[in-house]
Design a protein around this nucleic acid. Structure first.
Length: 580
RNA sequence: GGGGUGGUAGUUAAGUUGGUUAUAACGCCGGCCUGUCUCGCCGGAGGCCGCGGGUUCAAGUCCCGUCCACCCCGCCA
């Protein structure tokens, strides 16, 4: 209760428990800041209040755990405006020391610069810091309001198993060896996808779960090997029904946790339009710098790099007018050129429009007057503007310019992190071609329903089939996704067929699903929200580790536990395992 | 698997063309101090310069290898 005491408590006798945050020993009197979950309060040890307590107080050190008996009193004129409890202090009349502490490896305070390596090793100390405590408390509140919203809407919170079956497709599975069936393995769920569909087939109608998911893939700033989703599914629904309940959760979260009113319904953009305008499938709508296709303007150009790309199927010439970001130096442009190479671009052309409207550009001399005029018009280039061009495959154009767009916006101050632009991305393709394996893969997952109007193309033109899938994106980050599922056995077989899973394999890997589809499956659909990413945005932190109590490093280790670690030979023998 | 940044005291950093005893701040320890709140003042301790090799009269500094953390590409139905 340290942090909750206010002026109206003056005169109250209190007993407070907490940690010593700081000690200021003036010889005659000793001040300590006492810290507990709700905050900090100042305690004064004055020998004229209690000589014994004052004598003990001199020995106190940071992070000792103590109980203080005393009286709340006004600080008079000595108010500390930086503390919520700054009006008052505790005049101590007694103290009990519950535990001493060694000097911690870093200070327990906000704004420390200690390396994450040290913080992760001593995570139990890092978690004492106000920053992380506030993040985890926000996480608690988000989880509670998601539960409340869904429960009020008639969703049942149902649990699903962790020890399940490894299936093809999707991410790499974490596997668990079976002792009873040596040489065989369980897998940890990448998501409860099929279980929630089976709940619908079993008539539970509306399900949700705050589900832990496991994917054995390499990590990023916003990716952990185990993460948590608000997983939900409903029967007899369409896209709109799922999106409505999702918007209710998110709008309520932003209102209750950030006091921001989010307009609903969210904006909607198709996958094709998002790729065309933003180069990515989770657009950041807070700024312009959109991608513009100029392929048609350079089909007959004498500049071979452009003309070739403009005429080749699957290739394009795309550009961004980088305007409103201040002066761009030659070095900035060189940096951008290096940046796009990360995404496979072989080069980047640029133009700067001089005050007289002339092109200053390494490629100006390869283009005709007409071509330059047409592009100036298409890109709305004004004097002082810079445009950059990529001529490559569609996907390289999109990846390089889409990421450059984000990069420029971030480094050039175009991003306002108090603005939240939610949007739905719809009409995803059902399948994606994998050149390496020469086959189609499910873009979302193989249980996603194809659009009814495209069903006839499933065998003749699989790449053109749209899915009844939707993602919810916020400020350029995918925070959730879902779909209307297949509830028809024949359609499910055909989709498996399109991704190269024949009837025999389908029966072996997904027999339980196919069987369930034989016994009356209702139309159903759902979605999962990435809790960790949502909390990153709510907490305004760039690292997913700041919203997870005990996260793993980029190499999938736990520095506190020192895990993973070898197991006993006996343990391995029991499991029938041998290390290569 | 690949690219990049970093690793020096408990913590965060500085350390020049290779050259005397490896600096600073915070923290820590001791002393003084009755109104501080990043308390102040005086004094002090604290180093496998990530690890292993090599070059050199001499390596924190140069070379090779390796480990760890972070960011990114691939990967993430």
């Amino acid at each position: 209760m340290c942090g909750n005491l206010r002026r109206e408590h003056c005169g109250n006798a209190v007993v407070l428990m907490g940690w010593v945050d700081n000690r200021r020993d003036h010889g005659g009197c000793v001040f300590i800041d006492l810290r507990a979950r709700e905050g900090i309060v100042q305690v004064v040890f004055d020998p004229s209040d209690d000589a014994a307590a004052h004598a003990l107080a001199g020995d106190l050190r940071s992070e000792w755990v103590v109980g203080i008996r005393g009286v709340v009193r006004s600080r008079g004129g000595n108010i500390n405006p930086r503390l919520a409890t700054g009006d008052i202090e505790i005049a101590a009349t007694g103290i009990e020391i519950y535990a001493k502490s060694e000097t911690p490896p870093f200070q327990i305070s906000d704004g420390i610069e200690t390396s994450e390596e040290v913080r992760l090793k001593y995570r139990f100390l890092d978690l004492r810091r106000g920053t992380l405590q506030r993040n985890l408390i926000l996480r608690h509140r988000f989880n509670q309001l998601a539960r409340k919203t869904l429960s009020d809407r008639g969703f049942l919170e149902l649990e699903t198993p962790f020890l399940i079956k490894s299936t093809p497709e999707g991410a790499r599975d974490y596997v668990v060896p079976s002792r009873v069936h040596q040489g065989q393995f369980f897998a940890l769920p990448q998501s409860p996808q099929l279980f929630k569909q089976l709940f619908m087939m079993a008539g539970y109608d509306r399900y949700f779960q705050l589900a832990r998911c496991f994917r054995d893939e390499d990590l990023r700033a916003e990716r952990q090997p185990e993460f948590t989703q608000v997983d939900l599914e409903m029967s007899f629904c369409n896209e709109q029904d799922v999106q409505d309940v999702t918007e209710e959760i998110l709008a309520r979260a932003w209102k209750e946790l950030l006091n921001i009113t989010v307009p609903t319904p969210f904006e909607r953009i198709t996958y094709d339009e998002s790729m065309r305008r933003f180069g990515v499938d989770a657009p950041d709508l807070r700024y312009g710098l959109e991608l513009i296709d100029v392929s048609d303007l350079v089909k007959t150009s004498g500049f071979k790099v452009f003309a070739d790309a403009a005429n080749k199927p699957g290739f394009a010439v795309k550009a961004i007018n980088i305007t409103g970001v201040g002066e761009l130096s030659r070095k900035d442009l060189d940096d951008y050129t290096d940046f796009v190479k990360i995404y496979g671009a072989k080069g980047m052309a640029w133009v700067r429009i001089k005050e007289d409207g002339e092109w200053q550009s390494p490629i100006a001399k390869f283009l005709t007057d007409a071509e330059r005029i047409a592009m100036t018009e298409r890109l709305a280039l004004a004097p002082g503007d810079v445009a950059v061009f990529i001529a490559d495959t569609q996907s390289v154009c999109h990846a390089s310019l889409g990421n450059l767009r984000k990069h420029v916006a971030k480094t050039r101050g175009l991003v306002d992190d108090n603005v939240y632009r939610f949007c739905w991305v719809t009409d995803f393709p059902l399948l994606e071609w994998n050149g390496e394996q020469q086959r189609f893969f499910a873009a979302h997952h193989p249980f996603t329903s194809p659009a009814a109007s495209d069903l006839h193309k499933l065998e003749s033109d699989p790449g053109a089939v749209k899915a009844r899938a939707y993602d919810v994106a916020l400020n350029g980050i995918e925070i959730g996704g879902g779909s209307i599922r297949i509830h028809d056995l024949d359609v499910q077989r055909r989709v498996f067929g399109a991704i190269g899973i024949g009837d025999v394999e389908a029966q072996a890997k997904f027999g339980f699903l196919l069987d369930a589809l034989r016994y009356g499956a209702p139309p159903h659909g759902g979605l999962a929200l990435g809790i960790d990413r949502i909390l990153m945005l709510i907490c305004k932190t760039p690292s997913i580790r700041d919203v997870i109590a005990f996260p793993k490093t980029q190499k999938q280790t736990d520095l506190m536990l020192d895990a993973p670690s070898p197991i006993d030979i006996a343990q391995m023998l029991e499991l029938g395992l041998r290390i290569k």
